[in-house]
Design a protein around this nucleic acid. Sequence first.
DNA 1: ACGGCATATGCCGGTGAGCGATATATATCT
DNA 2: AGATATATATCGCTCACCGGCATATGCCGT
Lengths: 110, 110
Amino acid sequence: MQEPTLLLLTALADAPRHGYALIQEIAVISDGRVKMRTGTLYSALDRLLQQGLIQVERDEVIDGRARRTYALAEAGRATLAAEADRLRAVVAEADRRLRTIRPTARGALA
Amino acid sequence: MQEPTLLLLTALADAPRHGYALIQEIAVISDGRVKMRTGTLYSALDRLLQQGLIQVERDEVIDGRARRTYALAEAGRATLAAEADRLRAVVAEADRRLRTIRPTARGALA
DNA sequence: ACGGCATATGCCGGTGAGCGATATATATCT
DNA sequence: AGATATATATCGCTCACCGGCATATGCCGT
């Protein structure tokens, strides 16, 4: 799973949201660093629907504009939790190794 | 940055290693879940060299077999640290949201 | 009245990482 | 002799991501 997908599932974890709201939510989550393009968003939503990780919550028309709201499915919830666990482990390992004194690297302290 | 790349940089964070050793080290880091293919490995190493994130530590011949050892460059160390920070934040956010009671989801408590 | 911005969804083509397969070569173990 | 481990390298396919484009409405400022 790549980061845009991870961010999408994360953005849906606490509440259902529609496409445009997801773009804004992801900007907030990533502290403004990630501005997801609609090409990425809607193709990812299609894919995640296909995989059963998310589901369509409802279709509405607000002020003449179509709005489709997506919700995280149970499978998506489980997938996100598993992915978070895996990444947490890798990040912890990276931190541990970055703090290690490097035995043979040029210019190492030891 | 995708996960194989993250794992490669992590595997080089504590000590320089050659290609084949990296495959094994990544299997250890990922608790046996990731068996990196040589196609992924060597093309990634080429790319990371190109980007200046890693460097060639030395070339040797051990028991008649060529062996090229790679080391994490300073830029790679910084990149890995930054990536770890970013991922840690996203994972924390995912955890927080997964623990949140969902306001409007079907069957939600509230 | 008109331009620009925000809201909102959707498609299309290019790029590039990842991956499976394949090739090559040596040493060791059975 | 054959299988397994060590070790590097290349090739072509696929697919997620991304930039760009298209479409449409509502709102705000001038």
